[in-house]
């Protein structure tokens, strides 16, 4: 049953990868990669139970976080072409400013 679930997840990942390769816009690709990442998290989680090593779940947790950061970084790069342009167009920064 774990194997069947893994195979289904792999099929989904393949579909997401096909969308990422065919585009047509950059945003389609990023969205597909995001979906691929979510499925990777689930695949690792299923694999943890398939192999009986539940400590592997830590990796799934890390992947969930890194996936999100990756999407944010990719979007920022696509939008501005660099990482240092600020998103705060009106210069209204209050919270989150370091003390």
């Amino acid at each position: 049953m774990y194997i069947a679930a893994s195979l289904a997840i792999l099929v989904t990942m393949g579909l997401a990868l096909a969308r990422a390769l065919s585009g047509p816009t950059t945003y389609d690709r990023i969205a597909a990669v995001n979906m691929h990442g979510t499925k990777t998290v689930l695949l690792i989680a299923v694999f943890a139970f398939l192999s009986g090593r539940t400590d592997v779940l830590d990796i799934a947790l890390v992947y969930a976080l890194i996936n999100f950061i990756g999407v944010v970084a990719a979007l920022k790069l696509v939008e501005h072409g660099n990482f240092h342009t600020s998103d705060n167009y009106d210069g209204d920064v209050k919270e989150g400013e370091p003390k």
């Binding site: 950061i69 600020s86 705060n88």
Partner: peptide, 12 residues
Amino acid sequence: IILYSLVFGLES
């Protein structure tokens, strides 16, 4: 820290 820099600005 990178997530923080991306969201709140590189200077911060």
